[in-house]
Amino acid sequence: MSKAALTLEEVSKHNTKDDCWLIIAGKVYNVTKFLEDHPGGDDVLLSSTAKDATDDFEDVGHSSTARAMLDEYYVGDIDMATIPARTKYAPPKQPHYNQDKTPEFIIKILQFLVPLAILGLAVAIRMYTKSESA
């Protein structure tokens, strides 16, 4: 006996402690009776309602026993076309952050001048010590 696919809108209505449905791997589960027994507490399950909770379920690393328990809570399949496509997070475009607020051109000039000054100072000291010893 095949059950009709449920829409996200239909499943989203079941989001309370008295009526809690989850979508995991394309299937819908009525976990209301399990809320009090869930090791992570009922808030964890309630926060996963009205969306595809597959990632939430998989990220925890549930045991094979927990996965087998899902069968007794099965309600039907979800119509995947009613679940919004996930978008990959893209951080906003921002200019390079210069922590010390020094303009970049000054840094480049100093990268050239500081070693040159050190070399000049070394040569001057060397010449001064040669002239003192003569």
Rank of each mutant, 00 (worst) to 15 (best):
Q94A: 03
T54L: 03
P91T: 07
Y29K: 09
D19R: 00
G26H: 15
D18Q: 06
N30K: 12
A68S: 11
N98W: 03
D56E: 07
L46V: 03
D19S: 11
T54M: 06
D37L: 14
H96G: 09
Q99D: 11
R86A: 06
G26S: 13
D42Q: 14
S47Q: 06
E104V: 09
I23M: 02
W21G: 00
H62G: 13
A66Y: 06
I83M: 05
D71T: 11
M69P: 00
E58A: 07
G61Q: 03
S48C: 13
K88E: 15
L110K: 15
F57M: 03
D56L: 00
P92E: 00
L45G: 01
S63E: 13
I109N: 02
K33I: 08
K33C: 07
K93S: 08
Y97H: 13
E104K: 05
A85T: 12
I23Q: 00
L46W: 08
T16I: 01
D71F: 08
D79P: 01
Y89T: 04
N98Y: 05
L46R: 10
V31G: 02
D43G: 15
K93V: 14
F34T: 10
K108S: 12
Y73N: 07
K93F: 10
E72W: 12
R67E: 15
S48F: 00
P103N: 04
H14C: 00
T49P: 07
A53S: 04
S47I: 02
M80Y: 04
T16S: 03
D52I: 04
V28M: 07
K88V: 15
T102I: 04
T82V: 02
G40M: 11
